[in-house]
Simulated scan of single mutants.
Amino acid sequence: MSPSKEDYIKNIFKDMEERGYSQNKNLSHYLKISKPSVTEMIKKLTEEGLVYLEGTKIYLTDEGEKVAKKLISIHRLWEYFLETVLDFDEDEVHDQADLLEHVTGEKLTDSLNKHMGYPESCPHGQKIYINLENYKK
């Protein structure tokens, strides 16, 4: 999946957590792109079974939510690692984690998670969805 699609999925998930759904105008604002570009990508994500629409409201499918939670967890694992192991300043970790989340494969994610002791949250207190319990299933 392209980093662009991943950014859409993550932002839709964050909107859904906050207000229950997302909309084109919100995504256009967050991603700093035109509304027609958002419409085009939402169409692609719908065709791929990752999102669905109800009027102007955008929702993630179960598969889309699974993808979002994994991406967000990878991001938060990197934040945890950068801040607690490499002593990055708190204001630096987000941008670095944004870069790393898009290039982190399954094996590296698993190793990073294991190395960090399967943390349940990042240093900022936000939930990491892939933890030891996920590996027991």
Results as ranks from 00 to 15, higher is better:
Met1Tyr: 13
Met1Ile: 12
Met1Phe: 15
Ser2Arg: 10
Ser2Cys: 13
Ser2Gln: 11
Ser4Ile: 15
Lys5Gln: 11
Glu6Ile: 10
Tyr8Lys: 02
Ile9Met: 10
Ile9Phe: 13
Lys10Trp: 11
Ile12Leu: 08
Phe13Thr: 00
Lys14Gln: 06
Met16Ile: 01
Glu17Asn: 03
Glu17Ile: 01
Tyr21Trp: 10
Ser22Ile: 01
Ser22Met: 01
Gln23Thr: 03
Asn24Met: 14
Asn24Tyr: 13
Asn24Trp: 13
Ser28Gly: 03
Ser28Leu: 04
His29Ala: 10
His29Trp: 12
His29Asp: 08
His29Glu: 15
Tyr30Phe: 15
Tyr30Leu: 09
Tyr30Gly: 06
Tyr30Ser: 10
Leu31Val: 04
Ile33Leu: 12
Lys35Asp: 11
Lys35Pro: 08
Pro36Met: 07
Ser37Glu: 14
Val38Ala: 07
Thr39Glu: 15
Thr39Pro: 09
Glu40Ala: 14
Glu40Ser: 15
Lys44Cys: 04
Thr46Val: 10
Thr46Tyr: 13
Glu47Asp: 13
Glu48Asn: 06
Leu50Phe: 12
Leu50Gly: 06
Tyr52Asp: 00
Lys57His: 03
Ile58Gly: 02
Ile58Val: 05
Tyr59Cys: 01
Leu60Arg: 00
Thr61Tyr: 05
Gly64Pro: 03
Lys66His: 07
Ala68Trp: 01
Lys69Trp: 09
His75Ala: 07
Arg76Glu: 02
Phe81Trp: 13
Phe81His: 08
Leu82Tyr: 01
Glu83Met: 14
Leu86Val: 05
Asp87Ile: 06
Asp89Arg: 05
Glu90His: 08
Asp91Val: 05
His94Gly: 05
Asp95His: 14
Asp95Thr: 08
Ala97Arg: 00
Ala97Tyr: 05
Leu100Thr: 02
Glu101His: 13
Glu101Leu: 14
Glu101Asp: 10
His102Thr: 02
Thr104Trp: 13
Gly105Tyr: 07
Glu106Arg: 07
Lys107Ile: 14
Leu108Cys: 08
Leu108His: 09
Asn113His: 10
Asn113Glu: 09
Lys114Tyr: 10
His115Trp: 15
Met116Asn: 09
Pro119Arg: 00
Ser121Phe: 11
Ser121Gly: 09
Cys122Thr: 00
Pro123Gly: 03
His124Pro: 02
Gly125Lys: 05
Gly125Trp: 07
Lys127Thr: 03
Lys127Pro: 05
Ile128Trp: 08
Ile128Ser: 09
Tyr129Ser: 04
Tyr129Ala: 02
Asn131Val: 10
Glu133Ile: 14
Glu133Val: 12
Tyr135Ser: 14
